[in-house]
Design a protein around this nucleic acid. Structure first.
Lengths: 404, 404
DNA sequence: TAATTAAGTCAAGCGGATTGACTTAATAGC
DNA sequence: GCTATTAAGTCAATCCGCTTGACTTAATTA
């Protein structure tokens, strides 16, 4: 309101920020390395043994880590390794797709403890929300049967749905226009009492790869998600990057060439939507997944023809991603059955020559990600876990209501 | 060496990290807002008045900030604004181009205090380095004449040259192959005794825009650099993003379409290299800049034809950048004279519809950046300043020799 | 059995932000 | 013109969390 509100500055920090960061660093180190002793942690994090000891003691009291049996490894006192306690935290993930919604509960290490799915009316979000709240309630009860502390350890609800978000003209079949206009996050927050976060489905796939997949512990990775649409999930500097308005990575809307206003967006040609069209399948078909799986297994000629064409465009996309992001690896993720995804990956070989073609690479240029159809819901659930427990710049800063 | 060296973890932090961050936050706040009182800073950074007072006292003693006259603004004790002291720090920036090298000295606020340029032999880096060291020595002496504390306040040497770096097959006219193979950074570090950092020229342009240009205080901005080659400089989350191997943003090598191995890279068609070829000019011509300026001013038909074609491809690039990065703004930067750059910008209008076309934008989708031909050297110099004084995650962490 | 090595604890110390009372210096209201 | 109010900034004590250095514990090596 007054002139001060216009001052732009980052927030400062204090000992609480320090401590929060160090706790997160410990948790990440245990997640990446399985089990570590206090001495290991001290070396790895550059903190003193004493500091680590205090932090581990705290984490143990909070039920986030637990000691294992001591191990003797040469001279000196045996060390006591610690590992994460999976039941230390839970999160619910929700995937909202065109004709389907899925909810899962995951724990601190990314294991799925409960799952449920239901059909969703594409154009009636107010009806759909009731279905969704029912689904969430179901998995939440299931969780309550597993852990007595389930409610106090539930860190949030992550939602994944097709992007991009917040556009003017959202009357576009790729974007589930009715849902875009609906106040979904507010409704879900009110209906569940949880913190709610939103990602697009490609970001959710990348988040899933980061917590339990090929991007685990990799600082620069891009997942190329081939679903109904196509998008990239960006892990940059070890964190999900979402851009200025949450829409980074919408590569499916990239034009295949500068040839003019009629130039085709990538996702019109290489997405599963294009496959459905090519095969004359209905996206609302309840057995779509099984049908695709069967066709891919049988090497159906129409499917193989689509794969060939799509691979051609996707090979270009990988080249583009490598050229623009310079990631350590690109991960192919998909809503399609594993057979189909694998055939697509094979058809993309050999990749185009690019700056990623360098001597001494430790990771493959392109690899197959998680093909489980539940991976988007898993990634959705992983987001609140990551927000609560992974080291990140914003976790160090003092919080504020609004502003910069 | 032993098994511990394979443990992956981020580094922890302590009160020194806290303090370092808070100092940087104060400096950034003053840079972005001009002058602020301690009370303003306390509100903006969420720290207490007392903490801010102590930090400002330190910064004042270190010669980085200075008090201005008190100002009365309504009730209460008048406030004492502080501003950055330009002479608080200096850095040297070096641009290495194909036939030319430029060195500048900049101060803490990004003003250029000294500049020098010389011709450079494209294929003889060992000769070239002598020229460069002479140039650096020259501006360094000039700085010594300006400030008695110049040496102690010199934070580093930033180098900008065309990328990408570290490829296998670097025998490519775009990459100055002889220079890529030469141990440039080591030689310059030994020859000057300064910390040396390297960026590609597009990154340097973006860094320049960040310190004194259109990206000042913008968290998500991409500069599209049209020089001999084409590349993008990426400001993501308020920091320069350089990718897994320092080569992020090499959009000039992106293929214009998936049409196969013969598909053209962008920079073969829309870069200044293509303009020189189109005009039959020699890139080594000492009066290249003036010739281009004259031709652009005169609306030479060949130049206008090139502009039309290049704008067509660049319009596509802007669309691609917006689609993939979702930045708040795209900045057109160039090694070309302002007249030419401005004509190019105009010819790119109207932009292609994209997800950046949203209601309530505060920044233009595309704007002209600094057109001063010294901006790359300025950006090169701004990098050590930014590394030393801007808030960033890595500045909070405890340092280590190698590793993750 | 003694020396060595490494894990981990103890207790004091220290750096840096926080807290709350206080001082200073202006404007607003009567 | 006096008084109340408001805001900037300081003082001194406190508190939080990492660091330091000595010490204990428990293994292997010679």
């Amino acid at each position: 309101m007054n002139e001060n509100s216009s001052i732009r500055a980052k927030s400062g920090t204090n000992q609480e920020g320090t401590s929060a960061h160090n706790r997160r660093v410990m948790i990440e180190a245990l997640r990446l390395n399985g089990a570590l002793s206090r001495a290991d942690l001290a070396r790895a994090t550059q903190l003193t043994k004493q500091a680590v000891s205090n932090i581990i003691e705290d984490l143990e009291r909070d039920g986030l880590v637990v000691a294992l049996d001591t191990v003797r490894k040469g001279r000196g006192q045996p060390s006591t390794p610690y590992r994460l306690v999976p039941e230390g935290a839970f999160a619910i993930g929700l995937q909202i797709d065109r004709h389907l919604t899925r909810a899962v509960v995951v724990d601190l290490v990314g294991s799925v403890l409960a799952r449920a799915e239901a059909n969703l009316p594409l154009d009636e979000p107010s009806e759909g929300v009731k279905v969704i709240l029912g689904l969430i309630d179901g998995v939440r009860r299931e969780l309550a049967g597993i852990s007595s502390q389930s409610e106090s350890r539930l860190v949030g609800l992550g939602v994944a749905m097709p992007g991009p978000f917040g556009l003017q003209n959202s009357d576009d079949k790729w974007m589930m226009p009715a849902w875009q206009k609906f106040p979904l996050l507010e409704t879900l927050a009110a209906g569940t009492g949880l913190n709610v976060g939103l990602q697009n489905d490609a970001a959710a796939c990348a988040t899933a790869e980061r917590i339990v997949g090929a991007a685990h512990g990799v600082d620069h990775a891009v997942s190329l998600y081939v679903g109904y649409g196509i998008a990239a999930g960006l892990i940059l500097n070890g964190e999900l990057y979402t851009g200025g308005n949450g829409n980074a990575g919408e590569i499916g809307r990239a034009l295949l060439s500068p040839a003019g206003p009629g130039s085709t967006p990538l996702e019109h040609r290489a997405s599963l939507a294009s496959l459905y069209q090519h095969l004359g399948l209905d996206a609302a078909d309840a057995h779509l997944y099984e049908r695709m799986d069967a066709l891919a297994l049988a090497e159906d000629p129409k499917v193989m023809a689509w794969i060939k064409d799509a691979a051609h465009d996707l090979r270009w996309s990988v080249h583009l991603i490598e050229t623009i992001f310079d990631p350590q690896t690109v991960i192919l993720t998909s809503g399609a059955p594993e057979t189909l995804a694998r055939r697509l990956l094979e058809a993309m070989q050999p990749l185009l020559p690019s700056i990623a073609d360098r001597p001494g690479r430790s990771l493959p240029r392109l690899q197959l990600g998680i093909t489980d159809p539940w991976s988007i819901a898993l990634g959705a659930a992983a987001e609140p876990i990551s927000r609560a427990f992974d080291p990140r710049f914003s976790a160090i800063l003092k919080t504020r209501s609004g502003g910069f």
